[in-house]
Design a protein around this nucleic acid. Structure first.
Lengths: 205, 205, 205, 205
DNA sequence: TATGAATGAGTCTTCATTCAT
DNA sequence: AATGAATGAAGACTCATTCAT
């Protein structure tokens, strides 16, 4: 990487970092381009060399952040002995939600955007922003259990994702209608029930 | 009602109607107070006689709209012979989603806000804005089936609400990951599974 | 006084009292007609039955307030044995400033307006607002000492008034350049010097 | 100075000039930001690049204007043969008031603000706005007369400043209670009397 | 590539005043 | 005489975007 290219990378990272901090601390709506560049220590015009507007920054940050989160969950899963598919899904959900529970600003930031689109293709805007492809990863997870057969696995995953994310948003951030800890067993049971709805039983005899 | 009070009501309704139309057609962020009052045919100052800002209008509109939707679902349910609790829930969910499917702007508008908060107490700001109290209504639904016993019914309802609303948002508006029609059976199965997780079986013998 | 006239008087007083409180507590610029009528418990339109605008209220309040202050000073002076003209002036100045020192909002409020205009004719707008006529009173003060002869007494009084009021404003409210207590002896000496400048000495022999 | 920096200076000066003209001709309260930028021929946003609000413009203009005035008085004093401290003070007061008498809008504008604060440190906001430091200058004036000893010279100066400024405001602008020309001898006598009150006499034998 | 001064449209908000009741 | 809903002009301030350097 030449010196110029290196410098570019530094500016880009500074802008990402600055925007991330500001989005988390004061929300996207209240963060202006001015805030971002000032915090990043670059000039205003520079922002427009890298991004179209602050929403592009947001989207790419969501990809990055979500990708990191699932990658970490995956690595943690590797360390365990868990073999059942159901348990693996629960493990990942639990890991990710656990992280969000401890970092509410990230939850706040990511929630409205971490949806199917991101999970299916964590890289929406810029391929370089995330190394994690949610759907591919999930396919691998299924194939690990050769004996497992699922009906419309994508739909199943979608239902789990939507349920988990919106349920944890309300309970973690607002304790409504119950605390997340209280919700947890019922949520995980619901997820298990959804999975079972999609498992094709071999017992056809 | 005196002439003055009548006039007041007319202005208020004009503002509500104007804001509703604009929120649905161009979104909340792009709608300014100027747009709202111009469209309503009243002066700018009048807006501030009735509302603090456009977000108050939004919240009260969500209450009103969601309340109407569930009330209509309820009336429709009355006309049927459905007696099982599970079927009643599915009927209501199906009715409401059906309406939203045919009116995507309303879905768009209501989604980010029609959540537990609204359902639990459709009346958040102004008691006059909605006649429908989601939670009360649900309690009655349970009590109609005297033989039915549920474990943490509120949590159950919460899970169903969150799952249904976020799943229908993505599928109806973006056809992602599948069309809503394709999702429907799986979604309803998921809801039924959640309900069953919470039913306390009498078969204790 | 008829019942209607009585009622009018009550509203007028309520408006005066309300404006006075608000002017002292938050300043004139930040006090709106809305604030005044709300605080007074009357309707907005009523304000305009009694006053042209808030500046009329202010001017009449200044007259009232300043008039009361000097009247009180006068009454207090009566109780003393002070006979020298110089001492009488100092007594009055000291009494008035003493009151203002203990009530800084009044000082703040009155300062920019209690000037020669008000003193010369405490009643500027409405004769009913004040019973005190500064200049007349001062004339009487001079005539009490038959042996005293002054050159341009009005100018002398003017110089004393201007010096005393602006000097006490800065020192009392901002402690600049010194505290009022520190300034006091020098201020009173300056006043005495000004008086002596205007006394026509009898010692012509 | 680069082309950009030069251009900046031009805009800043245009804003100062525009605001100054408008403040003098129509008063601060009735001058809006809109007026200032329009008159200056710059965009609205540009105003906020240089000032927080119109009150900052006012304060900096007062410093500039008062500084210029006293500097001119000083230069004029240099040309004379005046050696007595008392006469020097009178000369400066006379020079400054003479200028204000011929330019009533400036008097109007400066009066409410040219007080101790400004005199003590003409540079309040921006060091670049004024070259004149009132208090320092006064100290030098005293030291020129090595034989002169003053008791609390700052208080003395304060009394003179307050008396002169408020007395000339009322007489020049309103001819109340007399014209300034009529007041002049009495005012200057009063000032001389104040100075003498503070002179420590050497004649201790 | 990077800068940052300049822009000016756009938005919110306040408030004195009117007038039908 | 009293009310208070309605007005809309007026003003402050923000901010994404451009462009000459």
């Amino acid at each position: 990487m030449g010196k110029a290219a290196e410098n570019k990378q530094i500016k880009l990272e500074a802008l990402f970092k600055s925007a991330y901090d500001l989005f988390l601390s004061q929300g996207i709506a209240k963060t202006s381009i001015h805030d971002i560049v000032q915090n990043a220590g670059v000039a205003k015009g520079t922002f427009y060399l890298y991004f179209k507007d602050k929403y592009e920054v947001r989207d790419r940050l969501v990809s990055k952040t979500a990708g990191k989160l699932f990658l970490a969950a995956h690595k943690e899963l590797q360390k365990t002995e868990i073999s059942s598919f159901e348990d693996k899904i629960i493990f990942i959900v639990d890991y990710v939600i656990g992280k969000l529970e401890n970092n509410k600003p990230i939850l706040q930031f990511i929630y409205k955007n971490l949806s199917w689109g991101v999970f299916r293709q964590a890289v929406t805007r810029n391929e370089a922003d995330s190394d994690f492809n949610g759907l591919d990863y999930f396919q691998e997870l299924i194939q690990e259990n050769t004996s497992l057969r699922l009906r419309s696995p994508e739909t199943m995953l979608f239902l789990i994702m939507e349920l988990a994310s919106s349920a944890c948003y309300s309970t973690i951030l607002e304790n409504e209608p119950v605390s997340f800890q209280e919700l947890k067993p019922d949520l995980y049971n619901a997820i298990r029930a959804i999975i079972r709805n999609h498992v094709i039983s071999d017992a056809t005899t």
